[in-house]
Simulated scan of single mutants.
Amino acid sequence: MLEGNEINGNALSGVQIRTAANPRIVKNRIWNNDNGVLAHDAGMGVLEENTIFDNTMTNVFIKTDATTVVRKNKIFGSRGTGVSVTDGGQGVIEENEIFDNAQAGVLVLSDGCPVVRHNRVHGNRSAGIEVSSKGSSVVRENRVFRNRFGGIMTASGSNSSEDSNHVYDNLDRVQKAVQSGQCLFSVSGKESFPMHNFYRCITCNTSDRNAICQSCIERCHDGHAVMFVRCDRFYCDCGADHLDRSCCLRQN
């Protein structure tokens, strides 16, 4: 049991749970570490009623077959994501307030498979909840609002079940940029990865690693042979001027 502690200023994680450890972590303040809480290598445990904030990478990071329960915490102000689940991480994320993180409130990456329910997810500077390709999740009865890129966003190849979420008043900057013909780099820079359709240009001999947004395909690569790759998280390499030809939308 870790209860009522102030855990801050560590070069790595504030709390690390691994190799089937199963602690209760209750009513702590965990802040200004690399990751706030890192659960991995089949770590378990319950995080409950903590204030987890202002960590450099991720406030709560669940990966490599960890099955941590994250319940009734305030999770905010990370310079990365609020909660990240990847590489076989599972667990339950429920009844938390997840807000004002520099990227997504909840991010599910490859082979992550959490249950995300009854949370308030708001004011994050990417999307509220993102499920990337090869991720899967149950997303149920959350309130998701006022997030910059959108509410709940799922990629091609993901397996996400959504039920009875209340998604409202999101800024939807990604969709609005595409609708107005802006390059997505204009809303993301290199610091974040908006989720939308991305393409490659066969004429310009770009690879699958060179993601081009829909607006740049329609303007900068008009008349070229192009290929849709998938809907996923990326920033536009055309707008970032990583391609041989300059982005005409950025020039304008």
Rank of each mutant, 00 (worst) to 15 (best):
I202C: 01
S110V: 10
R143C: 03
R200N: 02
S78T: 03
G91E: 06
T206A: 02
S110Y: 10
S110A: 15
F76S: 06
I152W: 11
E130L: 03
A20Y: 14
K74F: 12
D54V: 01
A66N: 04
T81H: 13
V144D: 10
V138N: 15
T154Q: 12
L2V: 15
H221D: 00
N33T: 11
P114T: 09
V69Y: 08
F185D: 00
V70E: 03
S84A: 14
L249A: 09
R24W: 07
N96S: 01
N119R: 13
R24Y: 12
G4K: 14
R200E: 00
S186V: 00
L243S: 04
I25K: 09
R146M: 08
A11P: 07
V108D: 11
C220P: 05
R233D: 01
G123E: 07
T81C: 05
S136Y: 08
G45L: 04
D100Y: 14
D232G: 08
I152Y: 12
S207G: 04
G123Q: 11
E218D: 13
D169F: 06
F185E: 04
C213D: 07
S13W: 07
M227L: 05
R173M: 08
D169C: 00
H242T: 01
L12P: 02
N170R: 10
G123T: 06
R18Y: 14
V167K: 14
L109E: 10
G135P: 07
N210M: 06
V131W: 05
G123D: 06
N170V: 04
D222G: 01
G9K: 13
R79M: 06
R250Y: 04
G36C: 07
V174R: 05
M195G: 01
S180F: 09
T67W: 09
A177F: 05
F53K: 09
C238H: 10
E218I: 01
I98Q: 04
Q182P: 00
S132W: 15
N205T: 04
P23L: 08
G36R: 05
F145V: 03
N205P: 00
E130R: 13
H224S: 00
C248E: 09
I30S: 13
I30T: 11
A127E: 13
A240N: 11
N210F: 07
H221N: 01
S126N: 06
N197M: 00
R233F: 00
T19Q: 13
T206Q: 03
P114A: 09
I7W: 14
G151V: 09
I98M: 06
A102F: 03
S126W: 02
I212W: 03
N159D: 13
R245F: 05
G189K: 02
S161M: 10
G36F: 08
N50T: 05
V46F: 04
N32T: 14
S215E: 01
V229L: 12
M227Y: 06
Q179E: 14
I30V: 12
R200F: 00
K134Q: 13
T81V: 02
S164H: 15
S133Q: 12
G4S: 14
V187S: 04
C236L: 02
S136M: 09
T67V: 15
Y168N: 05
S126L: 02
D241Q: 11
R120M: 13
M44C: 01
H166A: 09
S84I: 03
N159Q: 14
T64P: 06
V15Y: 07
A225W: 00
